[in-house]
């Protein structure tokens, strides 16, 4: 939303040293996973990150509290992602839209659904409704980068993510996608 991203307001737990250690107590562990998962979601939403890579510098801040000199280990972070995957909050990149039910240890790059494709689809639908563009054909580029979508939530959205959102609409029969790889267009009904 805001092009010069203000610093993310980390929750209280982020400054709690024990937050970075995997808890042994199952109740605590679950609470910890939940807190981490909400932290990751809000962090990604704040920075408008659609893909999360455990090794990318963009997430360095998220898992590493420089002030405390504490870091959530990669293994523990993966576990958090596994936890989120079960809740449908993340999905492996390249794992297909079938979801990460394959059981394999999650890849290091995941889609973060701080809004699920369905939610995105609804947002798109509403926007199409509001701007009275039913029946018109829009290119994907127009949807994500075009002037018309400036100010909407999905402006600047990852194209692949947009694809996923559109796929939801297609399945519902609300849209149709056609065209070549690079030149895809979409028509809303």
């Amino acid at each position: 939303m805001e092009p010069p991203t203000p610093p993310f307001d980390f929750p209280r737990e982020y400054y709690f040293p024990a937050f970075f250690t995997r808890q042994v107590n199952l109740t605590s562990l679950r609470a910890q996973h939940e807190k981490w998962s909400s932290l990751i979601l809000s962090y990604c939403a704040h920075h408008r990150l659609f893909k999360l890579s455990l090794s990318s510098p963009a997430t360095e801040d998220l898992f590493h509290n420089r002030k405390l000199n504490k870091r959530l280990s990669t293994a523990d972070a993966r576990e958090v992602l596994d936890f989120m995957r079960k809740d449908g909050l993340v999905e492996d990149v390249g794992g297909g839209s079938s979801g990460g039910k394959s059981g394999e240890a999650g890849g290091d790059v995941v889609w973060v659904y701080w809004k699920t494709p369905e939610e995105w689809a609804r947002a798109l639908e509403e926007w199409v409704d509001e701007t009275a563009q039913k029946g018109t054909v829009l290119t994907l580029y127009e949807l994500t980068e075009g002037e018309g979508t400036r100010g909407t939530e999905f402006h600047g959205m990852d194209p692949e993510m947009m694809q996923k959102a559109l796929q939801v609409l297609v399945n519902r029969g609300k849209a149709q996608i056609f065209g070549q790889e690079d030149q895809q267009g979409v028509k809303f009904f």
Partner: peptide
């Protein structure tokens, strides 16, 4: 106490430390 969820642990270079449980509140 940790098992009861009252404390939580922190593993670091200084060793295992126990904290009041601010994770599961």
């Amino acid at each position: 106490a940790e098992e009861r969820g009252v404390l939580c642990r922190e593993e670091g270079i200084e060793g295992l430390k126990f904290w009041e449980n601010f994770i599961d509140t």
